Amino acid sequence: MTPILDMLTALFGPLGPLLAVGMAGLLMIAVSLSVLLKRRPDPMDKFHATVKAKSTRTEGGPGLRVAGSGARQETLQKYSSFLVPQDEAEYSAARLKMIQAGYRGKNAVMMFHFFQFSLGIGLLIAGLVFALLDSANGSMTTQSMILWVLVPGGIGYMAPRYWVTKRIQQRREEIANGFPDSLDMMLVCVEAGQSMDHSIARVAKEIRAGYPALAEEFEIVSNEIRAGKDRTAVLRDMAERAGVTDISNFVTVLIQSATFGTSIAEALRVYAAEMRDKRVMRAEEKANTLPTKMTLATMMLTVPPLLIILLGPSVYGVVVTLGELSQ
């Protein structure tokens, strides 16, 4: 890299490496946009757009809002080959990840990649502008310029991924915390004479205030069962969407109970008791790790003030005495 940097510096001056990086990035963006804009529209996309426009005109409604939404959708569809993974397995994995984060929209994967590229390019340009302005004083080195350009771009590119990962963790924690209570409520409904389908619908309605993510999953299960989908497939889909081990085990228990003809109420009673014990164990585990986490904070916030209080007067007296002796 040193000969290349020396050559760029000799040709373009001290800002040569930075200008080369910026020009290469702009060239890649220009080539990508030109390829995407020249892409021929798919005939099936035209057909679906025509059918949607006809149905919109037939049904009526707020035309301006629908037109604006359609324009945004068409703009995103132009870049769908660039924003959406073309491999089916990769797209399915990305789609599942967005669903587990709570984003169930049709264009969730496309919007995720759009924010990735837009934030990455935006912060890259912002870092480039800051580096150019700061380098006018001549105090910034070449390595510092490159870091100021590339690091913000990397942060902008990784920020949406970090956000989605945190959303998945929070949602899984919420589902795991509310699952024992939902099982207790489901057991009460089943023992009161309601069917399993009605129990799921009732639980989804009752726990929405405390655990909206879990209520949403139960509501999807209830709606799919009412639509005629097989219950086993619906429960397996729920376990895959939630991504929580407790729900996967619960689905297995329900499927085995239905297969072997055992009592669902008894299975719910045993599994609900096990989930309550597991929740208590998780709480105790967090409580046991709390003293270790607080040790460093306690030492940093307690020991320095204590040393100042105990040793401060003595240090002051020694300093005063040494001053008097020196005089």
Results as ranks from 00 to 15, higher is better:
4 I>A: 14
6 D>S: 12
16 G>K: 03
16 G>W: 03
30 A>R: 06
47 F>W: 11
48 H>Y: 15
49 A>S: 15
51 V>R: 08
52 K>R: 09
56 T>S: 11
64 L>N: 10
66 V>D: 06
67 A>P: 00
68 G>S: 04
70 G>T: 06
72 R>N: 08
81 S>R: 05
81 S>Y: 05
81 S>D: 06
83 L>F: 04
85 P>I: 05
93 A>Q: 00
104 R>F: 10
111 M>Y: 07
115 F>Y: 13
118 S>T: 13
122 G>C: 07
123 L>D: 11
128 L>F: 14
133 L>V: 13
142 T>M: 15
143 Q>S: 15
145 M>P: 02
150 L>N: 03
151 V>L: 14
154 G>I: 15
155 I>C: 06
159 A>S: 12
187 L>K: 00
189 C>S: 09
189 C>F: 06
191 E>I: 00
194 Q>H: 03
201 A>N: 04
210 G>Y: 03
214 L>N: 01
214 L>I: 13
222 S>L: 02
225 I>Q: 00
226 R>Q: 14
227 A>T: 11
232 T>S: 13
236 R>S: 07
238 M>R: 02
240 E>R: 09
241 R>E: 08
249 N>I: 02
274 E>L: 06
276 R>E: 12
278 K>M: 10
279 R>P: 01
280 V>Q: 11
289 T>P: 02
291 P>N: 03
300 M>P: 00
302 T>G: 10
302 T>V: 15
303 V>N: 08
303 V>F: 15
303 V>M: 13
322 L>V: 12
